[in-house]
């Protein structure tokens, strides 16, 4: 959870401070600082950012599991699978406890337990 906030929050906090200090009311001049700052400056909860982070990670999954995780080849489809099952699989990959696993442990280790849990929920919620 912590990790998510740091990157995205630190920019608006600083940028807003700079903005107030220099040039009047917020958002009157969209050119005031780099666009990526502008976009995330605002009333955003940690939950919303976490959900967005999960969506961004999930986009990478599509390259092997198909768009929205719906394609079944030798690589399984993941859309609409039970959340608990997906979560157990992802956490087991992360802990390198899946015999015969190939690329998934190397991928899962890059993400936090919460992010993997978020991915499980995300794909479980999609239509198969």
């Amino acid at each position: 959870m912590r990790k998510i906030g740091i990157f995205a929050f630190s920019i608006p906090v600083l940028a807003s401070a700079l903005f107030w200090w220099s040039s009047g009311p917020a958002h009157s001049d969209p050119q005031w600082v780099d666009s990526e700052v502008e976009v995330i400056a605002g009333d955003v909860s940690a939950e919303e950012l976490f959900e967005a982070r999960v969506e961004v990670i999930a986009m990478s999954c599509a390259a092997c599991h198909g768009t929205d995780g719906r394609l079944r080849t030798a690589i399984p489809a993941i859309a609409g699978r039970p959340e608990a099952l997906l979560n157990l699989q992802l956490q087991s990959f992360k802990q390198d406890r899946v015999p015969g696993a190939t690329v998934m442990p190397r991928i899962a280790r890059a993400y936090s337990e919460e992010e993997l849990q978020g991915l499980a929920a995300y794909f479980a919620a999609l239509d198969p």
Binding site: S35, I40, E48, L49, V56, I107, A110
Partner: peptide, 15 residues
Amino acid sequence: AELTGRVLLPEPSWA
């Protein structure tokens, strides 16, 4: 995110 103002841009990740 830039053009619509309603898509959030979190910490990125690429695989």
